[in-house]
Design a protein around this nucleic acid. Structure first.
Lengths: 241, 241
DNA sequence: GAAGTGCTTTTTGCATACGAAAAGCTGTAT
DNA sequence: ATACAGCTTTTCGTATGCAAAAAGCACTTC
């Protein structure tokens, strides 16, 4: 589709090695803005419900309103901000109901993803999973929440990738990021159990046992969901920050 | 058109009846453009792979490039066009692989949706489903492909809505629309069986039998997927349009 | 003192303008 | 005749400008 050896591109001379690496694209500004804003939202610099004024963001980021607008629109379709017709963008405020719905969908998608992974995993795939598992265990020991969250995300992403279904991977990526956004503040308690379950999952995938992998992932996801609810319940009284 | 005799907006007095109906919003232009372009893509006026030039679309639709750009970006995140960094938008060309992946994801999501529907369905929900089922059967008799496709979409959308999971509903909406885009040209053959399966599904939901509803929906989706593959296989020789 | 009304300010939505990159074309040299 | 190089044209990406709508504020009135 893209590469025709003697085709229109490939200006002059024969380049071989550099062919694989896509020419350094000008880096679309809107993408950078999107990433920057997403980061600000995820790390709570921009609080839920906050009104985002295009001009302010533009000045803060040193760009014009245009790329900011475009980034905000994508942020909307991805569920990070709400774009009210003539009022602008507001950081999305997650409701308990929505969080639960996301966790439910995540459970379903991840379960299927685990099954696919078990069916497709090669030796090197398993090797990668074991490496990520190890990284997770180490992060667990270091008690570094941020590292732990990242390790968790990496493992799940790897499983999705191994499943060889790009559509599914992308969806899981979207859902997981939002779940993590809601969930990060309470990610600590369940870490030990969580990584034990991960180990089981990796084992099932290594065995190529799709049914078991699916079952383990399902239980894992439901555990996470349960933990979220427990937290929420005990939350009603504690009024931190 | 939006004229309210005593002022543009009810300030904070006591209005009761009109409170439910949101004041007619100015209808964001980008949304209209999005809908228009999506329509053009779905009905093949804009062919897969075609290069969409912003200026052309803008002139054709009688607007400036700005709303067109914004619409194109949303179309990208929804998977309808590919936005190449410095080259513009191209109507997405669905590959067989991607179609299958979408059908697989759809199967998983719809199965869960059916389970939820069975758990949540009220008497009036069932009534609605039966009405939609009837509409589908009638469309089947009329042999009107377009009507049939719409009836099918309506039923599935209704099931999703009854499941009371908005996140899931939206996802199903996105996936289904794309599946239908790929699938419409070959929607005919399986209609009869398809609606028999629908009837079974509605019955299971009416019984509140989540397990059975899920099973029926799963089989239904997999049948669709199978049909797609069969078509594709017999397609290699026939070279229509 | 409270409520309503009109005005001002702010902010979005859309349009236009300009610079830069990419693609295509033409001319020339081998 | 072919291939390369430079130029031209097209089209995107970003910035800026302008009008309309919404929110906020102060004033007036009861």
């Amino acid at each position: 589709m893209t590469s025709s050896p003697s085709g229109r591109r490939a200006p002059r001379g024969s380049l071989s090695a550099a062919a694989t690496r896509r020419v350094e694209r000008p880096a679309p500004l809107r993408q950078a803005v999107y990433d920057a804003l997403l980061e600000l939202i995820v790390n709570r610099t921009l609080a839920p419900g906050q009104h985002l004024v295009e001009a302010e963001l533009a000045e803060y980021l040193g760009v014009s309103r245009q790329p900011v607008r475009e980034a905000l629109q994508r942020l909307q379709t991805d569920g990070w901000v709400d774009l009210r017709p003539a009022q602008g963008a507001f950081v999305h405020t997650p409701t308990e109901e929505e969080a639960d719905q996301l966790l439910a969908v995540r459970s379903v998608l991840e379960t299927y993803s685990a099954k696919l992974a078990a069916e497709h995993a090669t030796a090197s795939d398993v090797k990668l999973l074991r490496k990520l598992q190890k990284a997770g265990e180490e992060a667990l020991v270091s008690a570094n929440v941020e590292r732990l969250v990242k390790a968790n995300a990496d493992l799940h992403a790897a499983v999705a990738t191994i499943g060889r279904n790009k559509v599914l991977s992308e969806m899981i990526g979207l859902v997981d990021r939002r779940v993590r956004w809601y969930y990060t503040p309470i990610a600590r308690p369940r870490s030990r159990d969580s990584w034990n379950e991960h180990a089981e999952l990796v084992a099932a995938i290594a065995d190529g046992d799709a049914e078991r992998a699916g079952q383990v992932m399902h239980d894992h996801a439901e555990q996470t969901r349960q933990t979220y609810h427990d937290r929420k319940t005990s939350e009603s009284s504690t009024d931190s920050d």
